[in-house]
Amino acid sequence: MRKKRFSLIHLLLLVLLTVVVTVGVGLGVIYQMVGKEGLSLLEGLHLINEKFVGEYDEGEVVDAALEGMVEGLGDRWSYFLTEEEYEAQNQRRTNQYVGVGVTVNYASEEGLQIVEVTAGGPAEEAGLQPGELITAVDGFSLAGEARYEGANKIQGEEGTTVSLEVRGTDGQTRTVEVKRTKLETDPVSAEMLENNVGYVRLSNFYDRSADRLKEEVTRLQEEGATALAFDMRNNGGGYLSQLTDMLDFLLPEGPIFITRDRAGNEKVTQSDASCVDLPMAVLVNADTYSAAEFFAAELQEWGVAVIVGEPTSGKGYSQQTFELPNGSAVAISTGAYFTGSGTSLIGTGLTLDKEVYLTDQGDAQLEAALELLEQ
């Protein structure tokens, strides 16, 4: 009887010891993964859940912590997305989205400046026009840094209504109620200009953009284009795969893009021998970012294009988006990228062949590009 009791106690102690060791090993692994700072975050959430006496939403607490953590990187290109924002981004990157049909930029610290209104979309029906300023969304001011949240706040569930405070070009402010709808965008538009110059405007580097650019350039060539002008103004970039597909199509054989990760590993993307043998120009402005910048830089580096417009920011990092267990996501800079010759744009931006700014009359940047193509 005593022997049986001893065996039972021994078994219980062995189980307890196993649990302790397992937990200890688990905590050790966790500590190695996140360090004391990461454990401090977990402990902070634990204390809030165990001790805080007020009402709170745990999801909002976690989102705020994650957003603050990404902001703490000090990298303007890394960002945090709530579950709703992440879903909207994924939809937008298919060149389909639920919204009101406006393209905006962040040039004004007072809100979102409308640069384009989608034909037939809700914004056009509501009377919104290019040049106007969206200063608030559903009562949320878009002044200062808050303007970077504006696009996500304008988007939402199909069929719902969003209230926009809009300042017209005459300085008068009005409130406009606009119904959100599902819109499909064509990332590329093209036309033949005078002197047989093919004009190609690219709005982003997301789904279908490379195929559409190839289609339009091929069409313009068949119609007799003797030069090409690519408009990358207000283009915020997109997928690197779309960029390299375009560059491969346009450029002859050789290196066209280099990426380097944290460990220093490099990947060099090569173009084949097939190319478009025409003189080219690229239009850029302060809102030409990322893939759009490198499109211009690579064509210029190969000596096939001139760059006309305004100085650019010099973005030289690529971001990966990682979905988190609660449905939110963090997009963090995980790679540096370079032109085919190894040139980075960080701190310099593009080297302009001609610096030109828009005025109230005409398109001085396009006119300057056409003049350079004629030389």
Rank of each mutant, 00 (worst) to 15 (best):
F6A: 15
I9E: 14
V15M: 09
L17D: 11
V19P: 02
V21S: 04
V23Q: 12
G28I: 11
I30H: 13
V34Q: 11
E37K: 14
E37W: 14
L41H: 11
H46F: 15
L47Q: 15
I48Q: 13
I48H: 10
E50Y: 02
E50C: 07
K51T: 14
D57V: 10
E58F: 08
E58A: 12
V61M: 06
A64D: 13
E67H: 09
E71W: 07
R76M: 08
S78R: 01
S78T: 08
L81H: 04
T82N: 06
E83W: 02
E84I: 03
Y86R: 06
N90M: 14
Q91C: 00
R93M: 13
Q96F: 00
V100G: 01
G101P: 02
G101K: 02
Y106E: 09
E110Y: 10
L112P: 01
I114Q: 07
G121T: 07
E124I: 08
E125A: 14
A126R: 06
G127N: 07
Q129K: 15
E132T: 06
T135G: 05
A136D: 10
A136P: 00
G139I: 02
S141G: 09
A143M: 13
E145D: 15
G150Y: 00
A151E: 14
K153Y: 14
E165L: 08
T181I: 00
T185N: 10
T185A: 12
D186I: 05
E191D: 11
M192I: 02
E194W: 06
N196Y: 09
G198I: 00
Y199P: 01
L202F: 06
Y206C: 04
A210F: 03
E216D: 10
V217Y: 01
V217M: 07
L220V: 05
L228Q: 04
A229H: 01
M232T: 04
N235E: 05
G237P: 04
G238V: 05
S241F: 13
D245W: 06
M246D: 09
D248Q: 11
L250D: 00
L250N: 03
L250I: 05
P252V: 10
P255H: 07
R260D: 00
E266Y: 09
E266S: 12
S271D: 09
P279W: 01
P279H: 01
P279R: 01
M280T: 08
V284R: 03
A292C: 12
F295L: 15
A297T: 11
E298T: 15
A305M: 05
I307C: 09
I307Q: 06
V308H: 02
S318I: 02
P325S: 11
S328A: 14
A329K: 00
A329P: 00
Y337E: 08
G340W: 03
T343K: 14
S344H: 05
T348V: 11
T351L: 12
L352E: 06
L352N: 04
D353A: 05
E355C: 04
L372C: 08
